[in-house]
């Protein structure tokens, strides 16, 4: 096991910059998730850590060793690919033993390690099968087994669950987390799914357009988003954003809506701001802000209400059951608001 440190890591494809100076410190044994929309450079970053892409600038350290020019096989890492990348002509056993065979490990050692990994992943009865004879979830396990047998310093996951159906994805998510808790190997996991990031990570790195927007624990990012992008990206359903203006009394949204000023607001009156409210922080209350129901989506545990507030479409999630119909007038009270600067997206309060 080892820590992974990225300092000012950059990557350009030709004249197109893709990663623009990224600094990340991942502690030994940590489960770090790189999350961001597609094209944000997260997979490229992972491939640079793996050694599959050259680094245009900066340093990548695994442990204390700078690995910028170290070939992949000498980095002591294992990677799980999005499409599993199982060798179709080899059985599950051969797939899992391939790296050990290349390393000329003794046969007993190889059998012991493959057997151990197969037992952990519940693959013992499938060792003789070929990848094409396995289901998606089983293939995914084989891909992980192949990584486990090598006992690497770092596990790299490149969107490993995106080819699975929704139910299996949730199940495998738990399995990967359990596995990490058992093996305690430093893991770097790339995904575009913020729920995967929230549920699995010790540390989340939110990336956008080649830079890190914020690094922190899942709840830290949820509670204290640094900017509009993180606020909008983390959390499901996404945070609602309403354009507003600072007044002496508080914040005005349109002509009719006035919200109280959040406690530590330093913005001067007259300033344009964006007010962010999470759907779960909107409560149905008589003293709330008027809105009109557009669509109601009950999920059982809670109900999502899509409404129009001051001409903007917003979402509210409520736990109690209401008999709202499209067109009903409701009053929603924001329990917690975030204030952002429109131009830079920076959070003010």
């Amino acid at each position: 096991m080892a820590s992974v440190t990225l300092s000012q890591v950059r990557k350009s494809f030709g004249s197109t910059p893709v990663v623009l100076g990224v600094d990340i410190e991942i502690a030994d044994g940590e489960f770090c998730v790189l999350v961001g929309p597609s094209g944000c450079g997260k997979s490229t970053l992972l491939r640079m850590i793996a050694g599959l892409e050259e680094i245009s600038g900066g340093d990548i350290r695994i442990g204390t060793r700078v690995v910028n020019n170290v070939p992949p096989k000498e980095r002591d890492i294992a990677m799980v690919f999005q499409n599993y990348a199982l060798y179709p002509h080899m059985t599950v056993y051969e797939n899992m033993a391939f790296s050990l065979r290349l390393a000329k490990a003794p046969k007993e050692e190889m059998e012991r390690r493959v057997d151990e990994a197969a037992r952990v992943l519940g693959l013992v009865e499938y060792l003789g099968r070929y990848p094409r004879q396995l289901s998606g979830g089983q293939r995914q396990r084989v891909a992980m087994g192949r990584a486990i047998v090598r006992k690497p310093q770092v596990f790299l996951f490149d969107e490993p669950l995106s080819n699975l159906d929704a139910k299996l994805r949730v199940q495998m998510r738990t399995e990967i987390k359990e596995l990490h808790q058992r093996l305690k190997t430093t893991s770097i996991y790339v995904t575009h799914d913020q729920i995967e990031a929230m549920t699995m990570a010790d540390k989340i790195v939110v990336m956008n357009a080649g830079v890190t927007e914020q690094i922190g624990s899942p709840l830290d990012l949820y509670d204290n988003p640094a900017n509009l992008f993180v606020a909008g990206f983390i959390g499901s359903p996404a945070m609602n954003f309403l354009p507003g203006k600072i007044t002496a009394a508080g914040i005005a949204i349109g002509a009719d809506i006035h919200l109280p000023m959040p406690a530590n607001n330093l913005a001067e009156p007259g300033r344009e701001v964006i007010v962010g409210v999470r759907p779960e922080h909107l409560a149905v209350a008589d003293d709330g802000v008027p809105a009109e129901v557009v669509v109601v989506e009950p999920t059982g545990a809670d109900t999502q209400i899509f409404c129009k507030m001051a001409g903007v479409e917003i979402t509210a999630v409520v736990r109690e059951r209401h008999d709202f119909k499209p067109g009903t007038a409701v009053r929603l009270r924001p329990e917690l608001t975030y204030i952002f600067e429109p131009a830079s997206g920076r959070r003010l309060a």
Binding site: A50, K73, F81, A85, Y87, L102
Partner: peptide
């Protein structure tokens, strides 16, 4: 032949020659 297979083999510790002989040619 998917590119990932070669990349995976590369990480598994295979040389170019081993990738050609053990992965690409059998496939």
């Amino acid at each position: 032949i998917p590119y990932e297979l070669e990349e995976c083999a590369l990480i598994d510790g295979a040389t170019r020659w081993q990738i050609l002989v053990k992965i690409i040619l059998p496939l």
